[in-house]
Computed example of a mutant assay.
Amino acid sequence: MNLYFPPFIYSFFLILGTMISVSSSSLFGVWMGLEINMMSFIPMIINLESNKKSSEAAVKYFLIQAIASAIVIFSSLYYYFFNGDVFSIAPNFLMTLALCLKLGMAPFHFWFPEVLGGLNWTNSLLLLTWQKISPLTILSIFFNADIFIYISLISALTGALSGINQTSMRKILAFSSISHLGWMGSMMFLNSALWMNYFVIYSIMSFIMCFSFWFFNLNFFSQLTLIKDLNSKFIIFINLLSLGGLPPLLGFLPKWMAMMVISSNFPILVILILSSLITLYFYVRLCFSTFTLYFQSMIWFQKNKSQKNFFILSILTLFSFVGMIPMSLLY
């Protein structure tokens, strides 16, 4: 069923739900903001796509988010009844699991790549960035330290290992997001507010990647080999390596900040660096194939490129080199 409301109506409620969750002083307000945010994002998926994949993605997203929201409101009631009691640790445990499910952190990540695979690049960007603001902010306040650090480390490793054999660009970004959530979660565990800086830089990198893939109409790895222009390949090459965290590009800056925070806990730091190296491995493999392989046959529809959009994309790619500035100032 199509809902004939202008897109800005859904965008307004999407922003409103996030603002309510972030600024609320009660757990009920937090839950209400999450629900408004969820119910405004689902019509955006269906209206902008209007195909079977988008409908399937909307149903999956609704079911997962509804289950997580039910656990959130249950843990809120649990906290209200047992506050100050020996059982008061249970609400934080349940809240942590529910918010990790909403974010798509491992081992609750199975829905995230499937939902992202059915969205267009605009909705993919929203799911990768804006939809994470409320759960991450709440999670930084309510989390059970005993379980949260293990979820973060599992997310970092799962996101890195699961992305190796992927051919869909959306799923590669999905598993990259899961890996980055592991880094942010580890920073939260050590009570560092720098996770917000990490998230802002990650959002900028995700925007550049989604804009690049939208501009070149890229959905699968095989389509990278059909690009003729060397400049276009270079743009994709730089942005992918920046998202993977290769120094001295912009993507290395948040991981550098994270390493400064986590340096006091060496085992956690080793696991996170290992996951980052695995991520960089398959990004470099993608980039190597982009430059070395080329097929003449056009097996997918390549839309006409606007020179204005290409100029904007080139300017955005320059942001990937911003990471060199603080590093040069330090050394």
Rank of each mutant, 00 (worst) to 15 (best):
N2G: 01
F8P: 04
Y10E: 04
Y10I: 07
F13K: 08
T18D: 02
I20S: 12
S24R: 13
F28K: 09
I36V: 15
I42V: 15
I46C: 00
N51Y: 06
S54P: 03
K60S: 10
K60V: 09
L63D: 04
I71H: 01
V72N: 08
Y79A: 11
N83S: 14
S88E: 09
S88T: 14
I89L: 13
L94R: 06
M95N: 15
L99Q: 05
C100G: 13
L101S: 13
L101C: 15
K102Y: 07
K102L: 03
H109N: 13
F110Q: 11
V115K: 01
G118N: 05
N120D: 13
N120K: 13
L127R: 00
T137H: 11
S140W: 02
F142Y: 14
N144W: 09
D146A: 10
I149N: 07
A156I: 03
T158A: 10
L161H: 11
Q166S: 06
Q166P: 03
T167P: 00
T167M: 02
T167D: 10
S168W: 00
M169N: 03
L173I: 06
L173F: 05
S176I: 00
S176L: 01
L181P: 04
G182N: 03
W183T: 07
S192F: 01
L194H: 13
S206D: 11
F211P: 01
F211C: 06
F215H: 07
F216L: 14
S222D: 02
Q223L: 08
Q223I: 02
L226V: 01
K228Q: 13
S232L: 14
S232T: 03
K233H: 05
I238R: 02
L240T: 02
G245P: 01
L246E: 00
L249S: 06
F252Y: 05
W256F: 10
S264L: 10
V270Y: 15
L274M: 14
T279P: 05
T279Q: 10
L280H: 08
Y283M: 10
Y283N: 01
V284S: 14
L286I: 01
F288A: 09
I299Y: 14
W300Q: 09
K303A: 01
N304M: 15
S306Y: 13
Q307S: 12
V322G: 03
I325P: 06
P326L: 14
M327G: 05
L330T: 10
